[in-house]
Simulated scan of single mutants.
Amino acid sequence: MSDIRPGGPAIAPAESPAPRPPAKTKSSKPASLWTDAWHDLRRRPIFIISCCIIAVLVLMAVWPSLFSSIDPADARTCDLSTARQLPSAGHLFGRDNLGCDLYARTIYGAANSLKIGISTTIFAALIGSLVGLVAGYFGGAVDSVASRITEIFFAIPSILGALLIGSTFRGSGLGIWLVVIALTLLGWPMTFRIMRAAVITAKSQDFVVAARALGAGPSRIMFRHLLPNALAPVIVVATINLGGFIAAEAALSYLGVGVQPPEISWGLMIADAQARFLDAPLPLIFPAVFLSITVLAFIMLGDAVRDALDPKLR
């Protein structure tokens, strides 16, 4: 209605301003467990330090020539007349009991130690996760049989069992894979228990009940719904176990049933140097320090991942 004032023209009412379109904002998707964990890990100094150490160790294992121009596999680089020589400009760690460059052997020893540790971790995680997934989902007789089998393996001391396997099949020609097989056979039950417990907890959740009601088969439920939700604790345990497997390989090599000459590993270097430790401690100290740092780095990484994936510990 127009506004009529005495003695003046009609004035139209002021129009209300058109509403502004809502400002465009970034789509906010609900953060997943892995996204939250990654954001949390990036703020943890322990995670960053352990990742840097592991990255250097991986470079040493894959491209040892980046760190040393001496190939310890070449017998011409060893000179008995310079055995147990102290560190110098050309030999940063000195020479071992056979006159070989200790720095080059320490660098090249990382390859077998990491190869055995990573391979054992992968195989143990795959076997334990698969058996635990099946046993936890089906339960009943399947769960009982699988649990009794794992209890048999748990009753065997790890080092003693691996020592028995290694000494029995030492001449089989498997090389370092014999160590991997021995440690895998004794290492998968731990992953089995973690996966089984996580699956039993997750299979009673609403999303599993809904998937079953919609006609999803056992394989789809296990691998599309249960496995992704039960994988976090397995990753944590596998990361921590990796350091333990590397230490176990060193122990087996020290006892004479692990890596065999002419291969190089830190455990074998420690075994060779322990006889002359009082006269020349450096050939034992340097590989032992590298072994300790490697095991500690993986344990630190596992602790950081565990704290990031467990909401109760944040």
Rank of each mutant, 00 (worst) to 15 (best):
L227P: 04
A248W: 07
S253Y: 13
L33R: 15
V131E: 12
S28F: 11
C78R: 05
C51F: 11
V145R: 10
A61P: 10
L133Q: 02
S129H: 06
R170S: 09
L186C: 08
A55Q: 00
L226C: 11
D310A: 03
V199N: 05
R84E: 02
C52L: 14
T25K: 12
T82P: 00
L284R: 04
G140K: 11
I48Q: 06
D74V: 01
L133I: 08
V209W: 03
A162E: 02
A271Y: 12
R314T: 00
A230K: 02
A111S: 15
P281N: 07
L227N: 07
A110E: 11
H39F: 08
F47T: 00
H225P: 03
V131H: 05
T25N: 03
R20V: 13
L309P: 07
G90T: 15
I264H: 09
F169Q: 04
P19Q: 10
H39T: 05
T239V: 02
A213N: 15
M269A: 10
M222P: 02
G267R: 11
L66R: 02
V208D: 12
L231H: 02
L185V: 15
V295R: 04
V62Y: 04
T120Q: 15
S144H: 09
G244Y: 08
V259Q: 13
I165T: 02
P6R: 08
I165H: 02
V234I: 11
S88R: 05
L178C: 05
S158E: 09
P22I: 06
E263S: 13
S119W: 07
G161V: 02
S158Y: 04
I200A: 08
T294Y: 13
L126W: 06
I264Q: 11
F286Q: 04
A110S: 15
I235L: 15
D279Y: 14
A14P: 04
R193N: 07
L278P: 00
Q205I: 05
G175A: 03
G7H: 01
A124L: 12
M300K: 12
V131K: 07
S28M: 14
P87Y: 09
R314N: 08
F290R: 07
G171A: 14
G175Q: 08
V145I: 09
A124P: 12
A247T: 14
H39I: 12
G302M: 08
G302Q: 00
A73M: 09
S265F: 12
I127H: 01
Q274S: 06
W177I: 01
G99F: 00
M195D: 00
A125S: 11
A238G: 06
P17E: 13
L133A: 09
K203N: 06
L282R: 04
T150V: 15
A297I: 00
A216K: 15
W63E: 09
T168L: 14
R196L: 05
M269H: 12
S119Y: 10
A75C: 04
P6D: 03
S147E: 01
L185S: 01
F138C: 05
S172G: 14
R170G: 01
A238T: 08
R220W: 09
G243I: 00
I118H: 05
F290C: 06
A251D: 13
S69I: 09
P157D: 00
S16P: 12
I107H: 13
S253V: 01
I293N: 09
A198I: 06
K26Q: 14
L214N: 15
K115P: 04
F47H: 09
A141L: 10
L130W: 11
Y103T: 07
